[in-house]
C-alpha cells in the first residue's frame, strides 16, 4: 500500500476554529482584567521604585527611597512610626487569625454534627452578616462599644478602661472588628473539612481516647489541616491589608498598613511610599497563596480549597 494509513494532519496556517472560539469568548474579560487590573498593578509596582515629586506624584529617577521611608528613614532622621504600623498590622493579623481559628473550630464542628437538614441554614446564618457592607458592620460595633454603652460600662466596672471612656477606639476594638469580619472565612473551609470526616471515626476516637479533647487532637484535628490552611490564608491575607476596621475602630494609635498606604494617596500624598506598602501586601498575598498550594499539596486536597 503506497499510502500510509493516516494522512498527515492538515496544515493550518491560521488559528483553528476551536482556538478562535476560545479567544472570542474569553477575550473581553481577559482584556478587561489585563487593562484594568494587571496594568494598574504593574504600574503601582513601578511607582514603588520611583521618587516622590513635590506634589506627591511619582517621578524619575528610579530609587529605593520609598522602601527606606517605609523602614522609617525620613527628612528628620529615623523614626519608628512606620515600622510600628507594619508590626502592628502583623501582630493584629496573627492575633485575629489565631482567635478566629479558636472560635471557628467549635462552630464548624457543631454544624457538622448537627442534623443534616439544618446544616445549610446554619452555614447561612454564619455567612449572612458578612453580606453587609463592612463600613456598616464597623459602625455597628461603634454603636456597641462607644462610651456609655452597656458593654463599655461593664468594662469600666471591671476597671478595664478608665471612667467616661469607651471600648472604642482601641486596639481591642480593631481585633474584635477583624474577628467579626473574617470569622465566616474560617468556618466555611473548616466545615468543608469536617463534612468529609467519617462520623464513625470521631465516635471511634471518643471510645479510644475517652476525653473529647484527646479525641479531637488525635483523630479529628490532623484531618482538618487542609481546611485550616485554606481558612488561615483567607483570613490572614485580607486582615493584613484591612483598611476600614482600623480606620473606624482603631483611631490614630491603632493604625495599620492599609491606612498608611491609603494615606499616601490622599492626605499625605507620597505615592511611591504608598505603592511600596501596597507591594508588601501584594507579596504577602502571593506568599500566602504559594504556601497554601505548596502545603496543601502535601496535605492532599489542596486544590479544591482555593475558594
Amino acid at each position: 500500500m503506497a499510502q500510509p494509513p493516516y494522512p498527515p494532519a492538515r496544515q493550518r496556517r491560521t488559528l483553528s476554529p476551536d482556538t478562535r472560539h476560545l479567544l472570542w469568548s474569553v477575550a473581553p474579560g481577559v482584556v478587561w482584567i489585563v487593562i484594568f487590573l494587571v496594568l494598574p498593578s504593574l504600574y503601582l509596582i513601578g511607582v514603588a521604585f520611583m521618587t516622590n515629586g513635590p506634589y506627591g506624584q511619582p517621578q524619575m529617577p528610579l530609587s529605593l527611597e520609598s522602601f527606606r521611608q517605609l523602614a522609617g528613614f525620613g527628612f528628620l532622621g529615623w523614626s519608628p512610626g512606620n515600622l510600628y504600623t507594619l508590626l502592628r498590622s502583623l501582630w493584629q493579623t496573627v492575633i485575629a487569625t489565631g482567635l478566629v481559628i479558636l472560635i471557628a473550630y467549635p462552630l464548624a464542628y457543631h454544624i457538622s454534627i448537627s442534623p443534616r437538614q439544618w446544616r445549610a441554614i446554619m452555614l447561612l446564618a454564619v455567612v449572612v452578616p458578612s453580606w453587609t457592607n463592612q463600613v456598616i458592620r464597623a459602625f455597628g460595633w461603634m454603636n456597641l462599644l462607644s462610651p456609655g454603652t452597656p458593654l463599655s460600662q461593664v468594662a469600666q466596672f471591671f476597671g478595664l478602661i478608665g471612667p467616661n471612656m469607651g471600648l472604642y477606639p482601641s486596639n481591642f476594638a480593631v481585633t474584635l472588628g477583624l474577628i467579626y469580619n473574617f470569622l465566616p472565612f474560617m468556618v466555611l473551609p473548616l466545615y468543608a473539612a469536617f463534612e468529609k470526616l467519617d462520623a464513625g471515626l470521631i465516635e471511634a476516637a471518643r471510645d479510644l481516647y475517652a476525653s473529647p479533647v484527646r479525641a479531637f487532637w488525635h483523630a479529628v484535628f490532623p484531618q482538618t489541616l487542609s481546611g485550616l490552611l485554606a481558612g488561615t490564608v483567607l483570613v490572614s491575607i485580607p486582615a493584613f491589608g484591612m483598611y476600614v476596621v482600623p480606620e473606624l475602630l482603631g483611631g490614630g494609635r491603632a493604625m495599620m498598613l492599609g491606612s498608611l498606604v491609603a494615606g499616601q494617596f490622599s492626605g499625605g500624598s507620597n505615592w511611591p511610599l504608598g505603592a511600596a506598602g501596597a507591594l508588601i501586601m501584594l507579596l504577602a498575598t502571593l506568599g500566602g497563596l504559594y504556601a497554601m498550594r505548596k502545603v496543601g499539596r502535601r496535605l492532599g486536597g489542596g486544590e479544591e480549597v482555593v475558594i
Binding site: V30, P40, I237, F240, V261, L282
Partner: peptide, 30 residues
C-alpha cells in the same frame, strides 16, 4: 493562565486593588 487571571481580582487585597486603579486612572487622566 485563564484561571489565574480570573482569581486575581478575588485574591488581591481590596486596598491594593483600589489604589492601583486610582493611581492608574489619575495618571491616565493627567
Amino acid at each position: 493562565w485563564l484561571v489565574a487571571l480570573i482569581y486575581l481580582p478575588i485574591v488581591m487585597p481590596d486596598i491594593v486593588f483600589g489604589i492601583s486603579e486610582m493611581a492608574f486612572f489619575i495618571t491616565m487622566d493627567r
